[in-house]
Design a protein around this nucleic acid. Structure first.
Lengths: 349, 349
DNA sequence: CGATAGTGTTGGAACGTTCCAGACATCGGA
DNA sequence: TCCGATGTCTGGAACGTTCCAACACTATCG
């Protein structure tokens, strides 16, 4: 029973963390049995299992990730390209999503790997990680600019799930989750109509923004359903405070006092216009923003809130299915946002 | 020259990405030579090097991370426990820091691994990653609650760098970077004094907050240097908008119209109080917040801005040094924040 | 009682890389 | 001419795990 080679040193010398062999020797079983104790416990006889697990706990053994990955091919890492804030994606938004993603993947034994790439090349960074087998799958989030990553990843048969629908190709055959922006603005518009306003204006983004146009349709649908005319009430402007402030003034001149916006930034611009005219927000005029950012929470701006936590949970669910070899669902999952009503759109009591 | 075993299949069959052996055969050299071409190019004859690199580029070879890590012991991953927002750390703040961290580590060939843990146990999660040799080092960020992680990691000789100073032990022997909160509030206070206010109030956090007390000292120092009395001007309240609003009213009753706050949230509360009294912010009264959050940017609240990008760069620099075996610097690195002046504290023109 | 089918456990091989010792030329100097 | 030094390249071994085929043993059945 010559103790397996492993140099001349006394086996299990304190250099480095314990390994399978260390545990095996202490428990008086083979390496493979220890491995099975962790990965296929049902194969072991109960008393053996207990003995092995006890030793594992005693020495504080944790399998070496690199070795496991090398042999099994799975890194238990999910890659996410971490971009600076972009249109439709406030930093804080990403933060909420990311946090739940990390928390949820933890439960499946996965971790999140962040990477970055050349801002001008939406594909940069993916290739390296894929070829070096560093990650098991990707989560892609910036689908507003078309989805070159999706096509690229699919071509390479790399598993991934998208947060954001494939605007270019609604029937794309990959798994995705998105939030129904249109439903959000519909909620906001209905809310303002219920508050007694009949001419509700829209402040949105340029026509080139798919997300912006989607949100606009919600406003339009709510107005139409109420039998109201929208002509002259929908404005497309750039996403900054001052543009929104000026646009609001323009509409206020025409006695339009209710606004639904494509972003909180624009909502803040409208609020500013109210103040400049001495109008009491929520009383003389009303506005609803989009994204429920910190700014909205702190200034009392009503806002449409995306269920990002739920999105992250669903993304992880799809990820698990994809990794298990399941085909992508027939259609993507579209979640409904909620409306957070604050003082900017509701009369006190 | 029997082609090395590798099953009976034609060598380099398209299954899976190319490996060292694939490249070696195509280039007509040994595995080791290919490895050297990447890791120690100076060992190769120039023409051999070129030939090998050409093949590498042709077949799109990237070393397998798991295998490399298993052999060399380095994962090229940096672990970061990703927490929900906490005192003194707005989500958006973390976002700026994290983004630069990802970007900077990219240049050193590292990636950022996010993990989470039991919110009640600041140590949870570290142990697993350490024992499974999943990460090369950690970045710890939540040092405001004491630094149990730092002590714990040091005990295990795990490399790490902290963002945030070790309040409990200023001479702790690990590498850290922090922002000089005191300098920030000093800047803010001086600015208000220059604007002609002489009774500048402080709205800060409870005494138990080290960060809060640090920021308070900056205000006090600036006032003292100007020969001004601070009695009755410093208030410690909870970090929410309404507490700040009420505190501001209390001070405004006493004709105190200039405020330096420990957070933007409090700053927003003060702004609200101005509005409620019909005071024009920046004209009749002034306030400066802390952290330059989106809310501040959008509401025109002057604020102290932390140089988070610079912090991240310095953290990575220290990380590299630590991983290279350098001892921790004698003292931590303290960076100076800047003041972003907006309409809340400066008269127009 | 011998063949058959589990049940629990084992050792060898393999994943793809880098470390290491050595092989084989080539070169300069004694 | 011979020797050591240098430059260039090679093959075996090892990192720690899981896959796989095979093992010993017990229980079942004809």
């Amino acid at each position: 029973m010559t103790t397996t080679g492993r140099s001349g040193l006394p086996t299990g010398s304190p250099a480095g963390p314990p390994t399978l062999t260390t545990v095996a020797e202490l428990a008086g079983v083979s390496r493979q049995t220890v491995s099975n104790a962790l990965n296929n416990p049902e194969l072991l006889r109960p008393d053996t299992l207990e003995r092995v697990l006890q030793v594992i706990a005693d020495v504080g053994y944790t399998p070496n990730r690199a070795a496991r990955q090398l042999r099994s091919g799975s890194s238990h890492l999910i890659g996410l390209r971490f971009e600076p804030a972009q249109e439709g994606t406030t930093n804080a938004l990403m933060d909420r999503f990311l946090h739940t993603l990390v928390e949820t993947t933890r439960q499946t034994g996965h971790h999140v790997l962040l990477f970055s790439g050349d801002p001008d090349d939406p594909l940069d960074g993916y290739d390296d990680l894929l070829r070096s087998t560093a990650v098991d799958a990707f989560v892609i989030t910036d689908t507003y600019s078309g989805t070159p990553q999706a096509a690229w990843l699919q071509e390479r048969e790399a598993p991934f799930v998208a947060f954001g629908r494939p605007w270019d190709d609604p029937h794309a055959s990959h798994a995705w989750v998105d939030v129904d922006g249109s439903a959000g603005t519909r909620l906001a518009t209905q809310h303002l109509l219920e508050q007694g306003y009949d001419r509700v204006a829209w402040l949105g983004w340029e026509k080139s923004s798919r997300i912006g146009e989607d949100r606009r349709t919600g406003w339009k649908a709510a107005m139409n359903r109420a039998g109201l005319d929208t002509s002259g009430l929908g404005l497309r402007i750039t996403d900054n405070l001052d543009a929104a402030r000026l646009a609001a003034h323009e509409l206020l001149d025409r006695r339009v006092v209710a606004f639904v916006c494509a972003s909180d930034t624009q909502g803040m611009g409208v609020l500013r216009a109210f103040v400049e005219r001495g109008m009491r927000s929520g009383v003389d005029a009303a506005v609803v923003g989009f994204d429920d950012s910190l700014a909205a929470q702190v200034t009392g701006l009503s806002s449409v809130r995306q269920p990002l936590e739920q999105v992250a949970v669903e993304v992880v669910g799809l990820l698990r299915a994809t990794l298990a070899g399941a085909p992508a669902p027939e259609r993507g999952l579209v979640l409904t946002p909620s409306l957070v009503v604050r003082t900017s759109s509701q009369r006190p009591d």
